[in-house]
Design a protein around this nucleic acid. Structure first.
Length: 322
DNA sequence: CCCCAGGTCTGTA
DNA sequence: TACAGACCTGGG
């Protein structure tokens, strides 16, 4: 089944958005599990062809389930969820017209053509992924997220293979933090060198306790469930309360996870890029850059950040600015 | 062995 | 409010 919207799936998947790790890739097809009406569904997405920049998708239900009846879930429900995750209703052409009016932004439009938000398929996963991304490299946090899924997620069999969901907050809040905790926790029945089912063994480092506490709060704090209906400012303050979540991670969660497009995640690189483009020779604080981005770009702030960051990261501008 | 990676937390003026 | 320092970890 095909969507008509302009999108570059490879660009979206490899753009490092912290809502999730890139989907599994085999033969140019990206696959992962999404949930529609609480039923796990394996979705394959792929590019129609290199030139068209439109995407196709297909889906499978798990093969050993009688109660996951397709009757309760229409194909349209699935299509709507896939469309939501890849933000296909966002009017890119209109956005490109906006970018072309600013000579500083124009180059990024051409460079990132077809790039869209990669929204959360699982809100909780987007929190943990974003926390994992702080002061970290994309390659390392995505590996960590994959390991967490394999160790504690639900293993689900599909005709095309075995996949893992992201674990629930109820599960993640009670996993061992490190090998020592696991060693003591299991009554020293295994050698400490063999303790590999703990958070730090996933390579998350000092973020492990943040993740556990956030998981705990997730299970009891009902405000978090209300985020999709909140205004940006209220959502920002709500997310900021979580351990391991500062302003940058909060904006990543809100933009990449929930689709608050007025968010402008600001880190050292966006700071350098914005300074280079709009305040040459000056050193603007990250906090001021965030305010500047939200004020200047308004409803397009999130997409501008996405495009600027990507253009800079892939074009070599970053090395130059450094 | 040192440095850094898309920051956050904590303690101090 | 503003600004150092420390901080897991793995790759260069």
């Amino acid at each position: 089944m095909k969507f008509n919207s302009l999108i570059d799936m490879g660009l979206v998947q490899e753009s490092g958005q912290t809502s999730q790790a890139p989907w599994g890739l085999i033969n140019n097809i990206y696959s992962d599990i999404i949930f529609v009406k609480n039923t796990p569904i394996l979705v394959n997405v792929f590019q129609e062809d290199i030139n068209s920049l439109s995407m196709n998708y297909e889906f499978q239900l798990k093969d050993n389930s009688v109660n996951a009846s397709i009757d309760d879930i229409s194909e349209n429900d699935i299509k709507k969820e896939v469309s939501r995750i890849f933000d296909l209703d966002f009017d890119l052409d209109k956005f490109y017209r906006y970018l072309s009016n600013d000579s500083k932004l124009k180059p990024s439009a051409k460079f990132c053509r077809g790039l869209r938000l990669f929204l959360a398929k699982d809100y909780f996963e987007s929190f943990v992924s974003s926390i994992a991304s702080a002061n970290n490299s994309i390659i390392r946090w995505t590996k960590s997220i994959s390991k967490i899924r394999q160790k504690w997620g639900n293993e689900i069999q599909f005709p095309s293979g075995t996949f893992y969901t992201f674990p629930s907050p109820e599960i993640l809040k009670s996993v061992y933090e490190d090998d020592l905790g696991e060693y003591e926790g299991c009554g020293r029945t295994i050698e400490i060198e063999c303790c590999i089912k703990n958070l730090k063994s996933c390579g998350v480092g000092y973020r492990a306790p943040y993740m556990k506490k956030t998981s705990e709060i997730f299970t009891i704090e009902t405000d978090i469930q209300e985020i999709p209906t909140m205004k940006y400012e209220e959502a920002f303050e709500t997310v900021l309360d979580l351990p391991g979540v500062g302003p940058k991670v909060a904006d990543c969660i809100l933009l990449y996870g929930f689709g608050f497009r007025e968010a402008f995640p600001s880190d050292v690189w966006i700071k350098r890029i914005i300074s280079y483009l709009y305040f040459p020779g000056k050193d603007i604080s990250v906090d001021k850059v965030r305010e500047f981005g939200m004020e200047k770009f308004g409803a397009y702030a999130g997409y501008v950040q996405l495009y600027l960051f990507h253009h800079a990261r892939k074009s070599g501008l970053m090395k130059k600015l450094k």
